[in-house]
Each structure stands twice: as C-alpha cells, then as structure tokens.
Design a protein around this nucleic acid. Structure first.
Lengths: 326, 326
DNA sequence: ATCGTTTGCGCAATCGTTTGCGGTTAAAAA
DNA sequence: TTTTTAACCGCAAACGATTGCGCAAACGAT
C-alpha cells in the first residue's frame, strides 16, 4: 500500500510550492481561481486527504471534542452521546468519549488526557464526587471551552445545558397530590448530586404546598434501587411514587408490578415503554441535551478562535413536557 | 494562563539539548541514570505533559482507537462502549466513537475520518447495508488493524469477536421445544445482517430437529418491533417465543404482558430485569465483547509496531451461559 | 603510551501543514 | 514611458517531539 498523498506530493506533481497548495486547497485569496482548481483537481486525483495531526500541531487544534461522563450505562447517556456525535460530526469534529467512573481523580486524569490530545472543547457531566472544579477552572484560559450538562455544580463560570430540575420535580409531585395520593414515595438518586438536591427540593416544595407527607428513598444505582425498592415496598404501600430517573424507573419495574400505585417520573422516553406499570413522565431528552450542549460548545470554540469577545456563561434550560403512557 | 511546558522548556532550564530530554524522559540507555532523574524532576516541576499530537506526527501514531457502530441506542452498544473504553484507557489509548447510522456511505466516511485522524486501530460493528468491505480491506496494509465484533461478514480477513450465533439460537429454541411449546414465534432483527441469518439458521435447525412449526417475524427497530409484535399477538397465540436481542425483548415487554407465553432470548442482562414477563436468556455480554475486541485490537497494534509477524485472523467466540429470571 | 570501546550527549533532519514576509510579474494609473 | 498597486506565488520558519548519526570524554586493554 502506498503512503497517503501529502500536499508535498501534489506540489511536486504540479511543480509548485507547498504553500501554494496549502492555500489553494482552502481558497486563500492570494491564489488564483485557476490555480485553485488545478490544485483541487490534482488533490482529488491523488486521493489527497489532509492530515489533521500535522495541521493540528501547527494550528494547535485537533478537530476533536471530548465528552466526559460518569459512567456509560443504558440510561440517559446513550442518547446524549448520540446527540453529541451528530452535532460534532456535522461540524467536522470527532468525539472522544471518556468515563470518570464517578471518581474525582479519574475525572482529573481525563481532563489531562484531553489536554494531551489537544481537544478543542469539553462536554462534561460531573462525577458525584466532584464538589469543586479547580481542575476545570482554567481550561478556558488555555483556550478550551467547557460546557456542563445534566450534572453540574452551583455558581460555575461555565455554560450549562440542563432542565429546570426543581420545577420538573415540583410539577411531577404536584401531579401526584392532585391525583389524590396521600402516601407518596419519592425515589431519588445519589444524594451528593446537585441534580438530586434540586429535584428533591422541588418535590418537597410540592409536598409542603399540599401538606402531604412522603417517604424519601435514595439509591445511587440500578441494583441498589432494585433492592431498596423491593425492601421498601415489602413494608409500605404507597399510592403514589415519584421516580427521578430512568434508572430508578427501570429498577422499579418489577418491584412495583401489580401494586396499583400511581407513578410519575422523569425519563428519556424509552423505559416507560418497557416497564410494567402505567405512568406519566416528564420527557427529559438526552438526545436534545446532547445536541444543545454540543452546539453550544462548537459555538464557543468558534468564538474563541474567531476572537469574538467572550459572552458570559449561559444557562440553557430545556423545557420539559409531560407525557403519559398506557 | 501560561502555555504548557514542552521539552524545550525542560532543555532550556537544564541547559541541555532537547534530544537528551526526549530520551531521558523515556529512559533511553544512552542517557545516564542521574541525567534521567534530573530531567524527570524538572519535568514534574514544570508540570510537563507530552503533546501527543506532536509525537503522533513524528511517530505517525495517535494513541487513539476508533469504535464504529451502526447506531447508539440503549441496547447492547452502551456496554460495548464501556468495555472498550476501559481497555483502551488501561492501555493508554483514547476512544473515538463514530456512528454509521446503518449507512454504507456514512461508514466509508467514518473510515476516512479515522485515517485523517491517524487512529491506530478500528473496532467496527458493520452497518446492515454493508455487504462488501472494500473500504476496509486495505487498512491493515496501511498499518491500521481492524477488529470486527457483533456484526461481521463472512470470510473476512479480520479478527472478530462474536458469539456462536447459530448455536445459541439453536439452544434457545431447543429449550422452547423441550418445554413442550408447539406454537412458537421466532422474532428476528434486520434480515440483511449476518447475525440475523445465523441466528435464524440455528432456530430453524432446532425446529426441524423437533419437527415443530413456527412463525418468523422480522423487525429491525424497537418501534417496528413493538408494532409488529402487537399486530402478531392480536391474531396469534404462541406458547413460546424466541427473541434474538434486547431491543426486541424490550419491544415485546408490553405486547407480551400477561400472555403467559414461554420466552427465551439473547440478552446483555439488563432488559430481562425490567421486562414484564418471566424468561430465560442467553447472556450475551456487550461489556465482555467490548473488552475482548479492544484487547485484541491493542494486541494487533502492538504486534504491528513491534514488527512481529502477522498471525492469521482469529475468530474469538464468547461462550454464552443461560440464565433464568423470575 | 596507544588504540579500541563504551558511555553520554548534541546536531540537525524529519513528520505534514500553516503562515508571515518578501519577491516577481503584469495590469492600471500617471 | 514610468510609477503605483494589485494579484500571485515561493521561501523558510514555525508547531513539539523523535531519532539517525556524529563526536567527545572516559575507560579498559595491550
């Protein structure tokens, strides 16, 4: 197999300089239309494809963005990845996927990896151990924009793409009390997460407003939730339940089977089609979040390279509609 | 923010040459122990981190491997990604994730992207439109190993990591007939896929052996399967069903609810915990497949750079155990 | 003391592109 | 006809790291 053609080869073939080729390929005004065409034709003929690595070295760019997530499970993140990949590709970027495994050191190492590979931007959903963001804070100063999504932290200087967690949880629980539930279970994820705190706050607010008591159950993984729920349901008989995520909803599927309990959740939309009980859910689209976050990131990258002035961090809040199933 | 330290900075600080630094950092025998230590200390002091892009340009490597999959859904692939990411990271590689969207042109473009970014190896699950692999065939000649997993093609010169599709399907359906099912439904995915053909062949063999009739239903996505199954079940009353994938199993969850039909499937293990009916399944671990495929790829990369002789393509077949739930 | 080896390090080219600057030519202005 | 001004293009230095080769000092052996 012969090596890939470089701009050198096409320069040699046309007996012109590499700089002319480099410019011609990108329609630099210094190069005549005719020459440009000649160059491009020859490029096609030689099946030339630019070497991003070399260009990246020179331009200190890589056409790569990174996505850092706590852990790849079947819940939520796959659709995020899908959305991000789509937008990235449309904009000529490739996507590096990294897991932090909900570990701060790991997250730090991932950031370092991003630097080593000169990624042009970072999309991150924070680990549940991340309570400060020193490891991220001066990334923008080195020209690497950061966008948070889903799991963020308060008062960060970064853009973030989220839903109004508090309000959604509030609406969901309010819905339960309006349906007349008197004995409600609120099922939440990892307590350290801001997202959990916010959703809990919303839920509590709805309960206080309606003057209804409720039991709170925390579980940070599918398996733990399965056990916790089975355990809880063996001794309690709630007439209403709020599940803050798809993972919890999936875990509830079997324990909740045949319990005749009203269920409201927050979901990406697929799990409700699979589980065992009728429910309402607020559609929290991972796909949309991924697309929005990636768009925002790409935009930031463009701004910083085009030298546009830095607009302040933006908080993009997806609106969330209620669906009901069965 | 000051720029990242380079080996030049280390060299300057120590008043030695960059070549010495480069060698010292990697314990080249030409460099004395003392000097090595000096260099490393200074490197740590300056918080030096190598620039993979620059090194990659020179060494024509990138420390990046690519994973190309048809489409990221919540089924199967998330665990594959997880497994691949883990092995990649352990071996100092980063992971580029690309989708082909089950489109051949898209797949070709993805391969090109891989070349542009000088990835060191490619893990691929073929699109269902891919009936020949001309676009992959001379990748190894350019030094880029390719490993197939899950969705492959017959007589390819590449390593592949799969399960024994035919046998697993055979076992599964045999199980149904042994349980006394007389009216079996065989639910399969996209007909173009080799994986489907193989599983179908296994299923048919079991049926022929037992002299039992069955109905075959094909559906290539979750939504289509939901409809096809609801439709099928409205006019048929199978006493046994074989579902060849998690996606189909999930789609069957609600239509099959309360039908009292024996179900056997092939699954990554999570969906069975969520769905609505008791079932047996053959555990087809995406995580394991991802890890094995990535290991094989990393090994190939090592071989090709170490100049070891090319061992012939290997077909790695995971063994699949039966689980039963509920 | 002399010659041959190591040992330890630096020089400079190289990977493929980009880009500031300088130079040439031809067309336009004077 | 001379000068100005574009329009085009090439030279060469980057980007950060790797690596073949050369060269000096230090060592051992004769």
């Amino acid at each position: 197999m012969q090596k890939r053609a470089t701009i050198k080869d096409i320069a040699k073939a046309l007996d012109i300089s590499v700089s002319t080729v480099s410019r011609g390929l990108r329609d630099h005004p210094d190069i005549s239309k005719d020459m440009c065409q000649l160059i491009k034709d020859k490029a096609k003929e030689l099946n030339y494809h630019p070497n991003h690595i070399a260009a990246g070295l020179r331009k200190r760019s890589s056409k790569i963005i990174a996505l850092i997530i706590p852990e790849i499970s079947m819940f939520f993140f796959p659709s995020v990845i899908k959305g991000v990949e789509e937008v990235a590709r449309e904009n000529g970027y490739q996507l590096l996927v990294l897991q932090s495994n909900d570990d701060l050191e790991h997250e730090k190492r991932n950031i370092q990896m991003c630097l080593d590979h000169s990624v042009e931007g970072i999309l991150i959903s924070l680990s549940n151990k991340t309570s400060n963001i020193d490891h991220l804070i001066n990334l923008p100063a080195s020209g690497i924009p950061v966008v948070f999504f889903d799991k963020s932290i308060e008062n960060s200087p970064f853009d973030e793409v989220v839903i109004d967690d508090e309000d959604v949880a509030f609406q969901a629980v309010k819905n339960l009390v309006h349906e007349g539930c008197k004995n409600i279970a609120i099922i939440l994820g990892n307590e350290n997460l801001l997202i959990t705190k916010r959703r809990e706050r919303g839920a509590r607010l709805a309960l206080v407003n309606a003057n209804v008591e409720a039991t709170f159950v925390y579980a940070e993984s599918f398996n733990k939730a399965q056990i916790a729920l089975a355990d809880y349901l063996s001794s309690h008989h709630p007439d209403g339940m709020f599940l803050m995520s798809d993972e919890l909803m999936a875990a509830a599927s079997q324990p909740l089977s045949g319990k005749g309990c009203l269920v409201v959740g927050i979901s990406d939309g697929m799990i409700p089609e699979i589980v065992n009980f009728p429910l309402k859910y607020f559609y929290h689209s991972g796909f949309e979040i991924g697309k929005l976050a990636a768009s925002k990131l790409v935009h930031r990258i463009l701004m910083s390279t085009e030298g546009g002035q830095n607009t302040p961090a933006e908080r993009i809040i997806l609106d969330v509609k209620m669906h009901s199933l069965h």
